[in-house]
Design a protein around this nucleic acid. Structure first.
Lengths: 255, 255
DNA sequence: CGAAACCTTGAAGACTTTCAAGTAGCGTGG
DNA sequence: CCACGCTACTTGAAAGTCTTCAAGGTTTCG
């Protein structure tokens, strides 16, 4: 389901842009929008063109699942646009989103032969697709890539540990503040402005599944933060934060 | 505090076994108890002796902290005996244990220059210590090691995702069952016996901090499982599981 | 424009926590 | 050898945070 869905998604959503394996990718990489990000930044142009031969670029419409939990892990992805949610589910439907990943993110670092998580496009997503086999070949030739992947994994691990602290020990208020502050740092990096304007793609349900809460609690908590003057809400996916540092304080459990 | 504490721990706890940097390690590796585990299994004897020159073996008494959250990450560790708990804390003392790690585990895969987590010995722990610098040198020479580290990180990532699902979406009962079943698989691998006997080193408080619960809830839940006949309790760190598969069912949220 | 999906708010309920007290295990020392 | 003190574990009762159930309002998109 997962892989075929992906292929179908490509041909259905961008019929005018048929991708021929190994061709378009070959051209695209050196001028790719994520040339400077993710694993690609670890390679020079020559090396990149080798990688390109293993890549296919595809576009995924919002809501389409690109990886199904437990399906054979024979592909890797590199996101070039949009946002993907990663998740795990229980048999009765309870769901935990383990992360939102965007531009430059490398997806599919599974060790086993099956994906341990699902992945679904939140908005329109573009990505490069590699077969596991071909990527491994390229990796063997470029040790730098290997290190890059290790660092990528290590970074994700740090984020996962933060999220475990959040899920295991933070209150609803602290969780929502953490989420919002996380969105701020993702958007602005270390250069946080006095007033941050956010426009995120995920729904309240996504946020709830990410924070281990219900939609109602997320909604109520956001309303609470608004009443306190800590945030201003525009459209449902737009939030303005007049004093990000106050949010950071709450997020880290200091009040 | 962390590194000095470690050194102090070594000299204080095993005064008769003074370790000379690069010497004992050099001998020990090829006959090491974890020769076949962890990163060492990725190397042949020759390569290993190179690695050994960068290693110092130390022993840590129970309760001693070997890594302090936020301290400079200039060392890596490879555990050869005992169990270590990894954790993150909030300013007010709330604590989340992100994992228990034992024999063969490689510790310190930080990308930043500071540890993002703390680490404390649960029982008596032995480990190999490397300076970050020296390990990186060895890694550069052995690409296999690099891949090994990536796989290690990928495996941890899978475990972290499981834990996020647990913390965000499982009930107390499911969490405790998950913990116990996890202990079973760690001890027996894929070959689960009809009746599993467990003897784990962590306290109820550790388990609580791992599962995002309080000690009281852990205790009550274990009592509940016992009343249901799902487990038998001996000494406080000993539990017998007459039907592991039932526990697995509960752990995965199927009842 | 209208159906559907999404978001918000209220009230009742549930699971877990908090507070409290008692029991048990263990190492030290009289 | 047993008392003492400490830490760990267990159990009960009350309290609290978050969830569940329910309904109304809003946005989105064909």
């Amino acid at each position: 389901m997962s892989v075929s869905a992906l292929t179908a998604g490509n041909s259905l959503s961008v019929p005018k842009r048929i991708v021929i394996a190994g061709m378009e990718g070959c051209r695209a990489c050196s001028v790719c929008e994520v040339r400077a990000h993710g694993i690609c930044s670890a390679l020079n142009d020559d090396e990149l063109s080798q990688l390109a031969q293993a890549a296919v670029r595809v576009t995924i419409p919002p809501g389409r699942q690109l990886i199904e939990e437990g399906s054979p892990a024979d592909e890797f992805f590199n996101i070039t646009a949009g946002t993907v949610k990663l998740f795990k589910s229980l048999p009765d439907g309870r769901r935990q989103i383990t992360g939102f990943v965007g531009i430059g993110h490398f997806l599919g670092l599974a060790v086993s032969d099956r994906y341990a998580f699902g992945a679904e496009a939140i908005d329109q997503v573009r990505l490069c697709r590699f077969s596991r086999e071909r990527l491994e070949t390229v990796i063997d030739e470029f040790p730098r890539l290997e290190r890059r992947l290790r660092n990528e994994a290590a970074n994700e691990l740090v984020a996962a540990q933060d999220q475990m602290l959040l899920l295991g020990r933070k209150t609803a208020r602290e969780r929502v503040a953490s989420f919002l502050y996380g969105q701020i740092t993702e958007l602005y990096g270390d250069d946080i402005p006095q007033t941050a304007k956010l426009h995120f793609p995920m729904t309240r349900a996504d946020i709830a599944d990410f924070l281990g809460l219900t939609v109602e609690t997320v909604s109520r908590t956001i309303s609470g933060l608004r009443r306190e003057g800590l945030i201003t809400t525009g459209a449902s996916h737009e939030i303005t934060v007049p004093a990000p540092s106050r949010l950071r304080t709450i997020a880290s459990g200091e009040e």
